[in-house]
Design a protein around this nucleic acid. Structure first.
Lengths: 186, 186
DNA sequence: TGGGTCATGTAACCTGTTACATGATTAG
DNA sequence: CTAATCATGTAACAGGTTACATGACCCA
């Protein structure tokens, strides 16, 4: 349900194809939402049925044709309403498969779990590095910070959150490893 | 798919009914997994079909009968295998409706967004308080730390993560509010 | 010549959510 | 008297995932 509105939001910045949207989503909301191409096409189709989007086909000879979507006024309205609706999602930690596994990791050996944490740390470092490098570039498809000064501050907020999150993961994992080592020693 | 294994894990500590499991899940993995009773019953049913669980009915006169589940050896095996499988979920930030809304909040007024952050902070404080108070009690249904010394350390890890997460949320929200106020002033 | 990019989709599936139903007992 | 607790479920739905299919062009 939320990817739907994410797509509407992105299309509010710029008319795009499903293919473009996949890339735009990865570059913008990708830090907290992994959008599947198949779902994007399905949502676009559905929203066009609802009258939230219209599309035109751009014919190409050397490449596949492109279906370019634009938001209608009723689509825009639906988007704004969604933004104002009461958040049922309150930003809470939820559905973390990783935490589920950690919770039950007492079934493994201490040595093995140490390795799991080390791997986890590596993943976090990769994520952090991605975020840092992404930072320097602008978003694609005309979604530059200059073009959208009112939005850019909020883009930064989500970016800051993601960075702080992965830093937290790193320090937490370090603390866990330290606790495991202490246990091994005793 | 993961609730499935969460239930298996909990039943590994203690035979229980679906009703018990709902409470046990809330008290243990509730910090990062909100389990729905209806799904619990469905999963129990499914796992019994798979042969991962067996159940006996305890007849009661004054209250509804209780169907008590126990893990079979094949269920135990499936659980252990799941634990060892490569994590596809790498603990990454994903599917955060809240972040999605923040990302697009440039459409609102600065004043309104400040209120959103204040509400968010309140929610986080409530969550933190819950975690602090939960801390002092033991888990229900015989899942005490003394009974499960090997597991208790990992229970703490997930608990620590949840606490650190909500603290991070608070400082982040404070920073956002500060940035918004700075903008209002300029 | 093989893999990546461009570009769009379908189908089946799995997981989780929401709403509803039942009905006795007990505590405030 | 009323609300909560005990206890188990069903049905419909929504949303997201995985796997697959197509086919041309371009670069190494």
């Amino acid at each position: 349900m939320s990817l739907r509105f994410g797509l509407l939001g992105l299309l509010g910045y710029q008319d795009m194809t499903g293919y473009d949207l996949k890339k735009a989503a990865d570059a913008t909301i990708g830090g907290f939402w992994d959008a599947q191409a198949s779902q994007i096409y399905r949502e676009l189709n559905y929203m066009e049925d609802l009258g939230w989007l219209t599309s035109v086909i751009e014919f190409q000879t050397d490449r596949p044709n492109r279906r370019i979507y634009s938001v209608t006024s009723s689509g825009r309205q639906a988007f704004l309403q969604w933004l104002l609706e009461n958040h049922t999602d309150k930003g809470h930690l939820n559905k973390s498969v990783f935490m589920m596994k950690i919770f039950f990791s007492g079934e493994h050996s201490t040595a093995e779990n140490t390795r799991v944490f080390q791997q986890f740390k590596k993943n976090c470092e990769i994520k952090l590095a991605e975020l840092e490098s992404k930072n320097k570039q602008d978003f694609p498809f005309g979604m530059t910070r200059d073009n959208h000064p009112d939005q850019a501050l909020y883009w930064e907020f989500t970016d800051n959150f993601a960075k702080a999150y992965y830093k937290l993961c790193l320090t937490w994992a370090n603390d866990c490893v330290a606790a495991l080592e202490k246990r091994l020693a005793s």
